[in-house]
Structures are given as structure tokens and as C-alpha cells.
Design a protein around this nucleic acid. Structure first.
Lengths: 222, 222
DNA sequence: TGGAGAATGATAGTAATACTATTATATTTG
DNA sequence: CAAATATAATAGTATTACTATCATTCTCCA
């Protein structure tokens, strides 16, 4: 169908050798997604990943310095992909309010596969982001890694949506708080639905996360 | 001042030997809080903790099975303490709305030391909860640990506040989502203010987290 | 007061993890 | 076809997250 000549560009600092540049690199990406989903970040090791792709762990280390950096790489990839979806999804909308609602939809509704990137399973990657992404910045190295620019894409998405909000209501006081509350909250509700259902409201149907956070944004900025 | 004969009761499953029952146990608690704050969960080890209290790591293992269980213990202790503050803080209020606002205040405003528990520094413990608590349930063992009841206190707090909301507005559709969004969001905003300031709205002053989430709850349930 | 039982200390050991290093063998490319 | 590059195969290291054992100290109560 639509096979665009688009590739997601990730900061050079996140890898030793660009995994997009070789076959082995792409297998590292696709298998690490599968394995991270299966084992979780703690039990995931480069040795196991090596076994999964039929290569020694030393080969993986030629692409990524550590499993932590690999996780950041994947999360960055995810947010870059989301940013691209937001940009292209909002470009043709006729009002800021419509643009805002589309952005929230992309950020809160379940993910669908995107065949434009064959070695990345976006549905699994979203699951990983939902369950593991907090570990990316909840470490003692946050400040250093923030200085390195690892969280730039995420921050840019927040800025974009905040700016939409500020266009709609220039007096609104807490645009960043509202946007991060929505983005992180949405992931949290999905995780709770799977593992701690009493912490969410599962009965409210399939679009409850989208409905809840859309209503939240509308009420807050009006 | 007020030195109540109250002690926080934690589920037996979280420790091998009750740390409240001995002097060494209490030192394990107080030093683990200091060390976790200093090193972060990843760099924290029982060996280092042993060194800090002048005991071999094997002694620490007589109290806690693993550093993960110790973290859960501390987080549980924290939420039990918060629950006690909510219960006693709301008991004398004259309306449900006042009770709700008090609960939100306790959940979103900065923590002050509580001299009732000498071996626990609640301010540090709150910092640990803010930076490390997501690791408690973002593991592959969530479901098992949930079955063991490790998250009961947290869930009970969510239920309490949800019920307050439902008393005020029995038609409100998403009480649990709203409450968890507030609790987790408040911690997140504090973490962002320290490490990723562009993701929050620091300019909005000291009570911005409380103000933002109080406004959110009021607007959402009205 | 003395002795049993419990708590702690001292020390050792193990499998796994998160790497680094080295050399040999493919594979690509000019 | 040679040179450069990528990968495989293998080994090694410090640290982690434990478990095990035995000696010492403390405590409490008969």
C-alpha cells in the first residue's frame, strides 16, 4: 500500500553503529522488540538477544553500548514515529481544536501496525513503551542523558501539543502539565487495565482512555 | 510533640523478619532510605547497605529476600502513612467536598517530616516514591505480586478517594481513572520539575501541582 | 547465674550479568 | 583480486544477587 521513503532518524549518540545501516542491525531491532516484550527489561540481556538472532553478544555490543541505551533508542524511535503521525495527521485539519483532538487521539487510542517500517512492530513497541518507558528517565543519569538530548523528541511532542492548546486558549496556565498528564496517564491506564484493573474504569468501554482524556483537555482549557 | 502509639503495619509477605521488631531492622530501614535516595534503585545493593550499617549483607538478607521486596516494603509503608494522614485529615471535615480537597492536598502537596516515626524520614521516602515507585509494579511479576496483595494499600487509597468523588457526583463515569491520574501525575510533575523542567510549568509557583490537580478534579466531576 | 535459643557476624561460594578484548573468518567494495 | 570492514568465536573480568556455614554474642528466664 503506502510505502513511503521515510525513515525515522535517531540521534547518533544512542548507538555505536547505526542499526538501520545493516541487516544484522535491523534484526537486532526487531528481535529486541520481541524479546523485551516477552521478558521485560530486567530479564532481557544481550546474551539472550544474541541467541535469538544467532549471533554472539559481542556483535550486539558493536551496535549498542548497553541495554539501557537500546531501550532509549527504541523509545525514541517510538516517539519519533508518533510525532510523524501527529504532524501528518493534523496537517489537513481545518481548526486548531480539530488538530488538538487528533493529537490526543493519536496519543491515547490503541496503536495500529504501520507497514512503512518492516523491521518494527509498532504494536509491540507500544506495549514496551507502556510497560518499560518510565525506566528510561527514572535513573540517576537523567540529567546527563537529558543534556545529551535523548529526550528531545518527547519534549518536542509535548511542546507541539502545548502550543496547540495555547493557540486555542492563550490564557491557559498549565499547558505542559496538562499534556504530560494526558500522555503518561493514557499509558498508565492501559497498563492498569491489564494488571491492576481496580485502578482504572474498565467497564467504560473501549475508547474510555481517549474519551476520558479528551474530556479532560476540553474542560481544562475552556 | 504528638508521639502517638501508632505504628504502620506492613504485610508479612514483604519481609522475612519484621524490621520493626529489632534495632538492626530499624537501621536497615532508615539507612536503606538514605542510600536509595543517594544511589537510586539500580546502584543500590545489599552489600552497600551492609557497609552503611556496619553489618554483612547476609544480615540484611535475613530481613528482606531482595532489594525489590525492600523497595515494595518502603513504598507500602509510604502509602500506609499517607492513608493514615488522609483518614485523620478528613475525619473532622464537614462536607464531602472539603474531605475530597483535603485528600487531594495530602496527595499533591510537598511532604513534611512526621516525628511520630523516628527511623523513617518521610521527606526522603517521598523522594524515593517519586523517583523509584513505578519500578514496583512495572515488572513481569506484577500479576503475581498483585495476587499476593502487595498493592492493597495503594488500591485502598484510590478506592477511598474514588468513593468520595462518587458521593459528590454519583453519575461520574471515571472516578478511578481520575484519581490515579491525579496521584501519579502529581509525582510526575515533581520529578519533571527537578529533571525535565520543560515538561511541566515551573513558573506557576509553589502550589502549582496542588492547584492544577484540584482544578482538574473539580472541573471533571462537576 | 548459667545455659538455651535467638540474633548477628565473618567468611566463602555460586551462577548470572554486563561488559571488554582478541583473534579468526566471512563479506563487501573499489 | 586485495584491502577494508563486518561478523563470529571465544575468553576473560568485576560486580551482582544471592545461599550456605559456622562462630560469636546477646537476651531472657528458670
Amino acid at each position: 500500500m503506502h510505502n513511503l521513503a521515510i525513515s525515522i532518524r535517531i540521534s547518533d549518540d544512542l548507538f555505536i553503529k547505526d542499526p538501520e545501516s545493516t541487516n544484522l542491525g535491523k534484526r537486532i531491532i526487531s528481535e529486541s522488540i520481541a524479546l523485551l516484550d516477552e521478558l521485560g527489561f530486567e530479564a532481557f540481556t544481550f546474551k539472550k538477544l544474541g541467541a535469538a538472532i544467532g549471533s554472539p553478544e559481542s556483535s550486539v555490543y558493536r551496535y549498542f553500548e548497553s541495554k539501557h541505551k537500546l531501550l532509549i533508542y527504541l523509545v525514541c524511535w517510538y516517539w519519533s514515529w508518533i510525532e510523524y503521525k501527529i504532524v501528518f495527521g493534523t496537517i489537513n485539519k481545518s481548526s486548531d481544536m480539530e488538530r488538538l483532538k487528533t493529537a490526543i487521539e493519536i496519543l491515547t487510542k490503541p496503536i495500529k501496525v504501520d507497514n512503512a517500517f518492516i523491521h518494527v512492530n509498532e504494536v509491540l513497541l507500544n506495549k514496551i513503551v507502556v510497560s518499560e518507558a518510565t525506566k528510561v528517565f527514572h535513573t540517576k543519569e537523567v540529567d546527563k542523558e537529558n543534556d545529551q538530548g535523548y529526550f528531545a523528541v518527547y519534549k518536542r511532542i509535548v511542546q507541539r501539543v502545548s502550543q496547540l492548546i495555547m493557540t486555542i486558549n492563550p490564557d491557559y496556565k498549565y499547558p505542559n502539565m496538562l499534556v504530560t498528564t494526558v500522555i503518561e496517564g493514557a499509558h498508565q491506564q492501559v497498563y492498569f487495565a491489564d494488571h491492576l484493573p481496580s485502578l482504572t474504569d474498565k467497564k467504560r468501554g473501549k475508547n474510555r482512555v481517549y474519551n476520558f482524556y479528551t474530556e479532560m483537555v476540553c474542560k481544562m482549557i475552556s
